[in-house]
Write a protein that binds this DNA or RNA. Structure first.
Length: 822
RNA sequence: GCCGCGGUGGCGAAAUGGCAUACGCAUUCGACUCAAAAUCGAACGGGAAACCAUGAGGGUUCGACUCCCUCCCGCGGCACCA
């Protein structure tokens, strides 16, 4: 008989809210637990069924910790700035603020309908001036510490979004948001100096309780490589006349120049056949000889117009042109020609590399194409496979053709060659990171304005803190044109210089929305603080976040940026910790019934509202936790929901039966024992995020209860407390039905008694030659010899042993007896 | 190409090296009902059985879904980073 989910869910949501049951108050005498969901972007589509999957998991942990006596803070808010609202505004002419707040209202309604134990009084909304005032303040904080700066660099430009993008927002050479091809553009933009933290961002990952997958992704993204920076010097002729072959060159006046290359293989230095510069390298135009100039200019121009993908696809044939100039190999003194090629990236390393065709696959291909000689510097060690004839040899080996370094193992030679270079002042050990500084400027409207003013006399002037927030003006034509829409708001744009009071111009770009989300978890500690970004006492008490749950798609975006902010604040003495999220868990994607990602165009989207309406929030929560491994992608199954709903209905009926019977009769001993085992299992499964097996264990307990009958108040109450984090409304309602007036969430998490949980008798499997022949029920504490004797005495075992000789008998306590035969 | 994760009934899935397929869905049969739904009960990997089955093949072990090697397939990440 189904229970009335609508009625009880509304009833308890209202009661909890009115009682302020989940409101968090600082209490230094109690241990805190900060449980956090990645706050949602309030899209017009409303919640996806994936949202409650992650929120339910956090909710379960939060409830359990509260019942274990922790002071729990579980805040909620909205990541409300961003492109979708702005694009919608452009299409429909509705202001982004209007759609955003409208969507937030809908999100709030939906999130409340699930009965999550959020402390709504701490809500933050990133597009609220009371919030972004402090985002701007943090920009100024970074600016003062030299961690926010403006510089000209090749940046990613999306023609469709009409804005620049951070490196992390480019996927496969395409804009993460609109899938448009991204182009490289040379622009002056604002950056945050994330690379200054590269070593710490890498090293501190080790201490975090995060999924290995995410840690690995961050490690790859930071991309540390060790090697050497090597200086190749050359003479540039200032005389326009080409020197003759007869040695007159020495008499022509010349200037010395130097090209620094970064390499991870200094041991291959004797195999260098050329040096390549990126087309954007500043020396290109300086060095090119007049006769090569035309060709080089054309090549540089062509490279500039290529997209990131066109330039970096692995399959592409390498191209390049010669500058007509040489440098000398710093150790051999050999002349090495200088080329430019667009496979060399301007913004990695020094923007220049040395070409060693014998020991690098790319260089090998380049040499084949342009007819360079291939000089071997390393051969395989004795006993190893021979070096390939028609490819580069990239494994370790022994040096040859390398002067005094001949015969060394290459690992050893790396050190010795670097030392030799260093002694001649031509090189040094160097560590390079793949990580680039975070480009935060956006030429778009719906974001926090960058608090900087440009003055003709004073230059770049930060907006004084007391003038914050720099309000985002409402009356703006926000259609994108490639420059920020804020340029078109004169009242915004034209300002007075805070220093000299002359007319000045306000920065018109806004900040990447990832800046907003890089510190929101700090704001939750003191969300209404009017005079500071956060209150130290509150942050010191509540932070860092103990449990953070969200999607894996933020592995190198939000999660990296938030770590950077935390470290920068830590260094300034503003935080007592330097990692924001101690424990992280990712939920898997919930797919459509057809096993593919839900999408409107495929018509396989499940609306959580419909599920709550039809089956109830408790069923929805339980089902999403029961579907499978939390971090795995799993398909939705509309029919499957009925299974957990039946479980709740049966429990409802069973508890009501016991109440009607005044708990007449006792709890069978077997059931009590089973309960304690279930408490043990559910408790540990929750900690390990194995919610599916925790629920299965409760289903088994109910099945046993129905089979055995009985069940006193103690039994029922323990069962309900186990269920409460998963299905809070039903558990609370039955809790009161049983006769309690205080909320179930103010009671203690049930403890299990190891003695009661112990099983009296166990079934032992008896195998002969590894095959099951019979089973045996024996007391748990039975001695090894006794089991062995009993097992061997079994008739089926005897039959199986006929004509065979016993070689060995394996006894595994409480599990099996295996008679090994010859 | 490199790195990581995975492959178990019709389906979602479970199993500290020790009874493979728990729990749930679907299906079939039965009870209740005039009937249906709901509910309750039973069966449910293949095979008549011996036995055979955890992507394929080998290995280690008394014993392998689990550990090791080779390969196939799927998913995710990175990708000309020198």
């Amino acid at each position: 008989m189904p229970y009335d989910h609508k009625n009880i869910e509304q009833k308890w949501q209202k009661a909890w809210e009115e009682a302020g049951l989940f409101r968090a108050e600082m209490d230094p005498t109690r241990k805190k637990f900060y449980a956090l969901d990645m706050f949602p972007y309030p899209s017009g589509d409303g919640l996806h069924v994936g949202h409650p999957e992650s929120y339910t998991a956090t909710d379960i942990l939060a409830h359990k910790r509260r019942m274990e006596g922790f002071n729990v803070m579980r805040p909620v808010g909205f990541d409300a700035f961003g492109l979708p609202a702005e694009n919608y505004a452009i299409k429909k002419g509705i202001h982004p603020r209007e759609t955003t707040y409208h969507n937030i209202e809908n999100f709030r309604r939906q999130m409340r309908s699930f009965g999550f134990c959020y402390d709504w009084s701490r809500e933050v909304i990133t597009c609220d001036p009371a919030y972004y005032r402090w985002t701007q303040w943090l920009f100024l904080f970074l600016y003062k510490r030299g961690l926010a700066f403006r510089r000209t660099a090749p940046v990613n430009w999306c023609d469709s979004c009409q804005t620049v993008l951070a490196n992390e927002q480019v996927e496969d050479g395409k804009c993460e948001r609109c899938k448009n091809m991204v182009r490289q553009k040379e622009l002056k933009q604002w950056f945050f100096g994330v690379t200054q933290f590269a070593d710490r961002l890498l090293a501190d990952l080790d201490g975090l309780d995060w999924p290995e997958k995410i840690k690995t992704m961050q490690r790859h993204w930071i991309g540390r490589s060790e090697g050497a920076e090597i200086a190749f010097r050359g003479q540039q002729l200032t005389d326009t006349e080409t020197p003759a072959d007869d040695g007159l060159a020495t008499e022509v006046s010349s200037r010395e120049f130097e090209i620094a290359v970064f390499t991870t293989r200094p041991d291959t230095l004797f195999g260098v056949q050329w040096v390549v510069l990126a087309p954007e390298h500043p020396l290109v135009m300086e060095l090119v000889t007049p006769d090569r100039r035309k060709e080089v200019v054309a090549y540089v121009e062509a490279a500039r117009h290529k997209s990131e993908l066109e330039r970096t696809g692995t399959e592409l044939e390498k191209t390049g042109v010669s500058l007509g100039v040489c440098v000398k190999n710093p150790l051999t003194g050999e002349d090495v020609p200088i080329w430019i090629a667009d496979y060399v990236l301007a913004n990695y390393g020094t923007g220049a590399v040395m070409g060693v065709p014998a020991h690098d696959e790319r260089d090998y291909a380049f040499a084949k194409k342009y007819g360079f000689p291939i000089k071997t510097a390393i051969v395989p060690p004795v006993g190893a496979l021979a070096a390939p004839v028609d490819a580069a040899y990239t494994e370790s080996g022994i040096l040859m053709n390398s002067g005094e370094f001949n015969g060394l193992m290459n690992e050893d030679a790396m050190v010795k060659i670097t030392d030799a270079l260093e002694a001649k002042n031509r090189g040094r050990r160097q560590v390079q990171y793949h990580l680039r500084d975070w480009l935060i400027s956006r030429q778009r409207y719906w974001g926090a304005p960058i608090p900087i003013i440009y003055c003709e006399h004073c230059g770049e002037v930060p907006v004084p803190e007391e003038d914050l927030p720099v309000l985002l003006p409402d009356d703006v034509d926000f259609r994108p044109t490639g420059e920020s829409p804020l340029v078109r708001s004169e009242s915004f744009h034209k300002v007075e210089c805070p220093r000299c009071h002359e007319p000045a111009r306000r920065e018109s770009d806004t900040m990447d929305t990832f800046v907003d989300s890089s510190w929101y978890f700090l704001r939750y500690a003191s969300p209404h603080q009017g005079d500071r970004a956060f209150d130290s006492h509150a942050v010191n008490y509540w932070c860092p976040v103990d449990l953070y749950v969200g999607g894996a798609e933020h592995a190198v975006l939000h999660l990296l940026y938030a770590r950077f902010f935390t470290k920068a604040l830590f260094d300034a003495g503003m935080l007592p910790f330097d990692e924001p999220f101690l424990k992280l868990r990712n939920q898997g994607l919930i797919l459509g019934e057809n096993g593919v990602k839900m999408s409107k165009s495929l018509g396989n989207v499940v609306n959580p509202d419909d599920v709550v309406e039809r089956h109830g929030a408790d069923t929805m929560r339980l089902y999403e936790m029961f579907m499978g491994e939390f971090s795995d992608a799993k398909p939705w199954d509309t029919k499957g929901i009925i299974g957990v709903r039946r479980f709740l209905d049966r429990l409802w009926a069973q508890v009501h039966d016991r109440v009607h019977a005044n708990f007449d009769g006792e709890t069978p001993e077997e059931l009590t024992s089973h309960l304690h085992r279930t408490i043990r299992k559910v408790s540990s499964d929750i900690e390990e995020f194995k919610f599916n097996t925790a629920i299965a264990a409760m289903m088994i307990l109910l099945n046993e209860w129905q089979r055995l009958g009985g069940g006193d108040r103690v039994f029922v109450e323990a069962f309900l407390r186990l269920l409460a984090p998963f299905a809070p409304h039903l558990a609370e309602d039955l809790w009161q039905t049983v006769g309690n007036s205080r909320s179930i969430f103010l009671t203690e998490w049930p403890a299990y008694d190891e003695a009661l949980a112990a099983v009296k008798n166990v079934e032992i499997v008896v195998q002969v030659g590894g095959k099951v022949r019979d089973r045996l029920t024996v007391p748990t504490e039975i001695g090894e010899e006794d089991v062995k004797a009993q097992a061997l005495a079994l008739e089926k075992v005897q039959q199986a042993l006929v004509g065979k000789e016993i070689a060995q008998v394996i006894v595994v306590k409480g599990r099996l007896v295996n008679v090994v035969v010859k």
